[in-house]
Amino acid sequence: MEQFGIWLAALLTIGIISFLYKDNILYKACEAIFVGVSAGYWFVTYFWDNLYRKFYLGIQGAELSDQIFLWMAVALGVMMLTRLFDKIGWLSRWPLAFIIGATAGLYMMTYFVSNAFVQIGATITPPPSMETIGDKISFVLIAIGTFCGLIYFFFSKEHKGAFGGAAKVGIWFLMVTFGASFGYTVMSRMSLMLGRFDFLFGEWLGLIK
């Protein structure tokens, strides 16, 4: 049975990779199988983890306040399904409004604190170890990069003269950042491919120890 699973996975992997040559029926079949299996897996996972474990098991022996919250969540979940019916479909806007409101409220605070306040603090505070010349250069570079990057995004004044020069330096810093991100992305995509090749040449063909 295990061998059957390995052969099936290998053939599906080859089917997906065949897209690199050109779109073909084998690729389409593998893609459809992947989407179907994923949807089925998610459905089953959500059913057992949410409805059974969190709600059904969670409500047993829970305090009244917790029980109310769980029932409210179930009610909102059911309201979401009313989208399927034209006449009462408007009810699904309530849980959506709740999700959007709660998420916006949480993000406002978390991003303000973690991505603004703490980051600004870290940028203007010299790191504790400024022992090597490298540390000092990095600190100065971060300060210049942040300052010039902010100037680039300041559109109330025309980018001319010294102001324009600083904005250009800002663009260079942004380009270097995008370059680093691209490099990391290439590394990540290669790793995905490596995982599949490792499976094909290792588990399936048995050529790798």
């Binding site: 973690s114 991505n115 980051q119 870290a122 950042t177 680093a180 991100s181 990391y184 992305t185 590394m187 990540s188 790793s191």
Partner: peptide, 11 residues
């Protein structure tokens, strides 16, 4: 993952 690492470096 390498794709996500640049987002985590500021932290």
């Amino acid at each position: 993952t390498a794709v996500q690492a640049p987002m985590a470096y500021p932290y």
